[in-house]
Design a protein around this nucleic acid. Sequence first.
DNA 1: CTTAATGCAAACTTTTTGCACATCA
DNA 2: TGATGTGCAAAAAGTTTGCATTAAG
Lengths: 151, 151
Amino acid sequence: MHDELARFEAYLRTRGLRMTRPRETILRTFLETEGHLSADALLRETRKVDPRIGQATVFRTIHLIAEAGLAREACNDEGARTYEHLAGHPHHDHLRCSQCGRIIEFCDPEIEQRQAAIFAQFGFEPQGHMMELTGVCPECRRAMVARRSRQ
Amino acid sequence: MHDELARFEAYLRTRGLRMTRPRETILRTFLETEGHLSADALLRETRKVDPRIGQATVFRTIHLIAEAGLAREACNDEGARTYEHLAGHPHHDHLRCSQCGRIIEFCDPEIEQRQAAIFAQFGFEPQGHMMELTGVCPECRRAMVARRSRQ
DNA sequence: CTTAATGCAAACTTTTTGCACATCA
DNA sequence: TGATGTGCAAAAAGTTTGCATTAAG
């Protein structure tokens, strides 16, 4: 956590920007929350710590956090963009059912390895990744078959 | 293309829905366009064929197309959700620079293979996937180093 | 003929922006 | 002090919904 705060401050400095109270509060809150977080949810959480924080600041700050490589977009969880921090926990990816919206998280070391290779191949400094597989889950497949035969 | 139209019609039938003129026009237009397409861009393209089509219909139809497994979300290209059709061309993934927004497309057969394995493992019927790696491209890395040393 | 689909406009939601004031270095 | 940052409110952008009318099967 301290590590991330330091990285963020360092990133800000390289851009001539400042580490402020609201930015720190927002980042701390963001890091404390596991899972997908919309800007709106982050605003609500942040306001529990400091109710004066405005939503514009949250939007502006989450962009900075993502640019700094501390967050990745965790893809439209319906409606709003969501973010996920990249600290501590292993990367995981998503398997989503296009029918019922259910999301299964998984982690595949082989894929992680290939991703690292691709970053290297193109000379990129890795920051994060997101992968979402879309399909139809077993339950919905059954439901679809049932519906079809009923007609 | 005929194949996709048939698949879409079949999908609609399983849900008790109808294949209509606007839906066909929208799907045809969508399939003819390579690359990422926002709902708004799809509306404009579709209206070149049939100017009476409304945006609500495009939104409603692109959802159906995605549910039918003929499109995948190609992740927020800035601002709006974009879609990409899954017909004909090989799956490709994205490597995006978080600083300048540049996107490199690549294709990694090993990753594709692992993805297929994961669908199978969870009993999902595969429809599509999206993967986006985020990092800092070589140019921006250089720029960042230069800026840092200047200060 | 019955049910679903369409287009329009309005409503809603999410995100960005302008600006006066506060704050950091 | 001079720059950047903040909160607020307004604006913009994207998406969904209600409804009268049209079209599909």
